[in-house]
Structure formats: structure tokens, C-alpha cells
Simulated scan of single mutants.
Amino acid sequence: MGRGKVELKRIENKINRQVTFAKRRNGLLKKAYELSVLCDAEIALLIFSNRGKLYEFCSSPSGMAKTVDKYRKYSYATMDPNQSAKDLQDKYQDYLKLKSRVEILQHSQRHLLGEELAEMDVNELEQLERQVDASLRQIRSTKARTMLDQLSDLKTKEEMLLETNRDLRRKLDESDAALTQSFWGGSAAEHSQQQHQQQQQQHQQQQGMSSYQSNPPIQEAGFFKPLQGNVALQISHYNHSPAAVTNASNSATTSQNVNGFFPGWMV
């Protein structure tokens, strides 16, 4: 059963329209290729989708540009000679206008650069001076605005850097304070411990001195011994001569000085 005849009108469904466009585009490109091969014809085919996408086919090995130029030459050759001459004249007039405009701009540029000023009169020179002054004011204004913008940016960056510097300095001070506190806390503990040890040593020394004063040491062995018995009896053992009495008193004094005490009978 053959396919029915398709009504030629715009397909309303967007998806169906895209599918139909793709199928028929491929078929058209295939037919153009077959026609160029079978009939040795020069074919240039241009297709634009509704979104503006380009699809092209050209059978010429030189490309699409040469075929289009060939088409333009053929179109201009088939035009009316009077219309062609009029178009050429209009184009020549446009060319002259553009040429004169370019020359004026070149002269103005040379004048602004300070060249070819001898041919200008006073009025033209004053006009050129006003133009240059206006240009300079505009340039200076733009320069000042640009410098102010840069200065504002630099001030903003400076404030940010100062704030960062303050934060870092505050953190450094806090760290130094913590280290100092920990150091002095340990030093104070060691100092107090040393003072306590010194106090204990002084207390022990004082106790030793008090015990030494209350109970002085006695030298039992050695060359000196404490006096025993009554000193008067020892003195009576010697002769009653003055020399004997003197010797006895000297020996008693020496022994008393060594033992660290003075008897009550010595006056």
C-alpha cells in the first residue's frame, strides 16, 4: 500500500517539524550530490534552518566562494546596461565622497600633530587651539578620574592590610603574654621553693646553734681535758712559793680559756 499524499503546509508540532526538516534536508543534499555526479553539473546548495544554522553543498572543487562569484558575474552581465551604468556612477560618487572624507581626516590628524600649520590662517589656528585645549581638558579629566579610582583602590587595600596587621599584632601580643605568664609563673614557683628551702636551712642552722650553745662540745680526747675536782685543792698540791702559784694560775687560766668557762673563784 503506497504512502498517501502529504498536504503542503507548515507542520505545527515542533518535534515533527524538526524530524521532517532533518529527513528532507538529507534527502535534498543526496539528490544534489547525485545530480552533480550523474550530469556533471556545478551545484551549490545553501540551507538555513529556522534557528539560522547553515547547511551547504558544493560540487565545485574550488569551493562555494568561486561558485558564488561566478553567479554574481553572470547576474551583473544579464542586468540592464542603463541600470548598470547608473549603479556604477552612484558607486563612483560614493567613492569620491569617502575619499574626500579620508583626506580631511588625514589633514586634521596632521594639524593636531603640529604639522602643515603654515597654510592655516589665524581663525583656523584659533579653532585648532580650542580643539586641542578641549582635548587636553578631556584627557586630563579622564586621567584625574583614573588616578582617583586607583587611589581609592589603594586606600581600600591599605585599610585591609592595616586591619590584617592589627589582627596579627593582637594575636602576637596574646601569644607573648601567655608565654610570659607561663614563664614567670614557673619562675615564681621555683623562687618560692628556693626561699622555702633557704628558710628551712636557716631554721636548721639556728636550731643547731641553740643546741650548740646549750650543750657545748667537750674535748675528752686530745691534749686538753676539763678540770676535774676542786681547783683550790689542785693549787694546794703545789708549793706555796710565788713561782708555783703563778704557774698554777697560768695553767688554770689556759685550761679555762680552752674549755670556754671562767670559774667563780677567779677575781
Rank of each mutant, 00 (worst) to 15 (best):
V6A: 12
E7Y: 12
R17T: 09
Q18T: 04
Q18N: 11
G27C: 05
L28T: 10
K30V: 02
K31G: 00
L45K: 01
I47K: 02
G52Q: 07
K53V: 13
K53E: 13
E56W: 05
C58F: 01
S60F: 00
G63Y: 02
M64G: 00
A65D: 03
V68E: 01
D69A: 07
K70W: 04
Y71A: 08
S84I: 10
S84A: 10
D90Y: 10
Y95V: 02
L98D: 09
K99V: 13
K99Q: 14
S100P: 00
R101S: 13
E103Y: 07
S108C: 08
E116I: 03
L117E: 06
A118V: 11
A118G: 08
M120D: 04
D121P: 05
D121F: 06
V122T: 15
L128I: 07
E129Q: 13
D133L: 09
D133G: 01
A134T: 03
Q138W: 02
A144V: 15
D149S: 11
Q150E: 11
E158I: 15
E159A: 15
L161W: 05
T164V: 08
R166N: 10
R170E: 10
D173K: 14
E174M: 11
Q181E: 03
S182T: 06
S187C: 08
E190F: 05
H191W: 04
Q194G: 04
Q199Y: 14
Q199H: 11
Q202G: 04
H203R: 09
H203I: 15
G208E: 05
M209Q: 08
M209S: 03
S210N: 03
S210I: 12
S214K: 08
P216R: 12
P226F: 06
P226C: 09
L227E: 00
G229M: 12
G229T: 08
G229K: 10
L233T: 14
Q234I: 09
I235M: 14
S236M: 11
H237M: 15
Y238R: 08
S241L: 10
P242T: 10
T246E: 03
T246I: 06
A248I: 05
S249R: 14
P263G: 05
G264C: 11
